[in-house]
Amino acid sequence: MRLTGWLFALLFTALCGGNVAASEIIRLTVAQNPDAGFRSIQQAINSLPDNDIQAIIQIGPGIYREKLYLTRNKVALIGSGADNTEIRIAELRTNWLKQHPSDWGAAVVNINAADIALLNLSIVNSYGELTGDNEHQFAVRGFEQATRIITANCRIIAGGADTLSLWNKTDGMYYHDNCYFEGHTDMVCPRGWAFFSNSTFVNKKAYATLWHDGELDARQKLVVRDSSFDGVPGFMLGRRHYDGQFYLINNRYSANMADKPLFRHTYPEEPSRNRANLWGDRYYFSHQNPAQAIYPWLSANLASHPQQLTAEHITALWTFDNRWDPEQQLQTLLNSIKE
């Protein structure tokens, strides 16, 4: 197996007494041929040393029928293109929980680490496609330590609810660019801070597409800009159960979208289930073309924000309150691939 990068990293660590230069990178290869470093993505992940060296795992074309578990920080999984590299498993959350104590393992990609990048690949939970059962089935599930997660040039698909579920509600930060998301109710449902750009959302159910939990910090927000929303007739834009904050900037909305504003979900018959609503409705819209506001409630209102924001203010760096620059981090990764 071609473990040159890994062995060099270990040797460098030993010689330097554990102080590894930031420029060092572990490079591994996964492919479906005998000459590859690894045939399994998880085997490549498991081979990584327990240190803070950036690891890049490049994955060749093919369908990889395996679940992934990411618990080591600074790992980038880089496919050969979303049309060429696919990670696919069929798993229903309810079935998983019948035999396991938690969601850990209920998703195709399970993340409990920081600085994880998923690039140029597809992640598919095919349970709904195979069975017609459209209940909760994760493609990607993030846990308590999942933060600074990047997806770019990906297709993330599930046959049911909660396709992309990054759920570190304390300090979770997530960046997504040029991705395709498909699922059912609450198909994209971040907790914490999330930024989406240049992406496509396709909802297969006549209910909510977006969902946000920002109850622990008034600064937490969900931003979607320069993207498009489509789905079955009557699909809705989004909802929240918790305090949340939505910024929808220069997006395109299909005529299939219901005339239903973003809303807070409550339980009139069980008030004890209702979550706090400390900061009220915070739904902000801006459009380059007024025709993008296909319903009155979509009308541009960003100028009414207490900070007098404009669309130009709504960047990834602003979304994360200047604590994380994912675009710079992504560019550094892409430059590393070319080296």
Score class of each variant (00 low, 15 high):
Gln245Pro: 08
Pro101Lys: 08
Leu166Met: 15
Ala106Asp: 06
Thr147Met: 03
Ala139Gly: 02
Ser165Gly: 05
Leu121Ile: 12
Cys154Ser: 04
Leu11Ile: 14
Trp297Ile: 09
Phe263Thr: 15
Gly60Trp: 07
Ile314Cys: 07
Thr209Phe: 03
Phe38Gly: 07
Ile294Arg: 12
Phe138Leu: 00
Pro306Asp: 08
Asp133Leu: 03
Asn110Arg: 08
Ala152Tyr: 11
Ala258Leu: 12
Asn19Ser: 06
Lys98Leu: 15
Val20Glu: 06
Gln137Asp: 01
Val124His: 12
Arg72His: 09
Glu24Arg: 13
Leu333Ile: 13
Ala114Phe: 10
Asn95Glu: 15
Ile123Val: 14
Gln288Val: 15
Gly280Val: 09
Gly79Glu: 00
Met1Ser: 11
Leu309Ser: 09
Pro233Ser: 12
Asn125Ile: 09
Ala291Trp: 10
Ser304Arg: 08
Lys221Gly: 01
Asp226Glu: 14
Gln220Glu: 10
Asp177Phe: 02
Pro101Arg: 07
Ser23Gln: 13
Arg191His: 13
Arg39Leu: 12
Ser227Trp: 06
Leu166Asp: 11
Leu298Asp: 00
Val188Ala: 12
Arg191Pro: 01
Ser80Glu: 01
Ser299Arg: 15
Thr170Leu: 09
Ser227Gly: 06
Ser80Lys: 02
Phe196Met: 11
Gly18Asn: 03
His241Ser: 11
Val75Leu: 04
Ile89Arg: 15
